[in-house]
Write a protein that binds this DNA or RNA. Structure first.
Length: 256
DNA sequence: ATGGCCTTGGTACAAGGA
């Protein structure tokens, strides 16, 4: 079973690239972030024609997430974090083949000390509390998406420049470790990886060409799934497209 | 050099992203 996550930065712009990528990689489950589409504008027919069941949770202009499955209809589908009132469409979760999949677009946070940073911290607290109960109900759980957190200095092209900056603050990293503390594992780090592996590169400054990026898109698997994890990779190729998303897809392979 | 680019909304440039 292959599960993928991709922040497409507007599905209206990136749909052809997504369809290409699905055809090439045939993932069983996909979560998307920053679709930036209301559900009535979601390209459901095109994705169904590509073999996927489609669940979208979006809004105008910003945010927006989706869950695609070609291994059966997701059930128990939830939008956002229950008990956390949120104006943004950030989380979609569903159960497929006994696996709870939680696809999330974590808040950006803008800058430490800002109101948006405070919202990010509240959101992260609510996510962790919800996931701790969710894991009791669904031991086989995958949390994946754009976390907007670079967990360690090795996930940052220039840790000195990024010291204390958004994505790299101690508070954000503490929350990431808190998620691991629930019994989750960063699938990418279960394997030997090339140094300077990023999932996001700034559109500016030729950052991709210079490989100056961050690893902020992640796939966390629960204790119960860890033995099943066979590989985890970041696919840089779509970043070389003519009008790329600034994020690359991340893929995990499970023997399920 | 407190920015460089891309997307949206809307039709000029501001906001947001990361």
């Amino acid at each position: 079973m292959k599960i993928a996550t991709w922040n497409v930065n507007s599905l209206a712009v990136r749909l052809p690239q997504l369809l290409d990528w699905l055809k090439t990689h045939n993932p069983d489950l996909v979560t998307l972030q920053e679709t930036k589409l209301t559900d009535d504008k979601f390209p459901t027919l095109e994705l169904e024609a590509a073999g996927y069941r489609v669940r979208a949770f979006g809004q105008k202009t910003y945010n927006g997430v989706a869950l695609l499955s070609r291994v059966g209809e997701p059930d128990d589908v939830l939008h956002n974090i229950p008990a956390f009132d949120d104006a943004s469409a950030r989380v979609i979760s569903g159960r497929v083949n006994g696996v709870r999949v939680v696809g999330a677009y974590f808040p950006n946070g803008q800058a430490p000390g800002s109101e948006k940073f405070a919202y990010k911290m509240q959101w992260l607290r609510a996510l962790r509390e919800w996931l701790s109960t969710e894991l009791e109900r669904h031991p086989k759980l995958v949390l994946l998406g754009d976390f907007n957190i670079a967990p360690e200095d090795c996930d940052v092209h220039d840790p000195v420049q990024w010291l204390g900056q958004i994505h790299c603050t101690d508070e954000e990293r503490e929350h990431f470790r808190g998620l691991l503390g629930l019994g989750m594992h960063d699938a990418f780090r279960l394997f030997e990886q090339a140094p300077k592996s990023w999932s996001w590169w700034d559109y500016r400054n030729l950052a991709f060409r210079k490989n100056q990026g961050l690893r902020i898109d992640h796939i966390l698997v629960s204790d119960a799934l860890r033995p099943a994890v066979k590989a985890c990779t970041i696919d840089r190729l779509p970043r070389k497209n003519e009008r790329p998303s600034d994020h690359a897809p991340v893929v995990v392979e499970l023997s399920l």
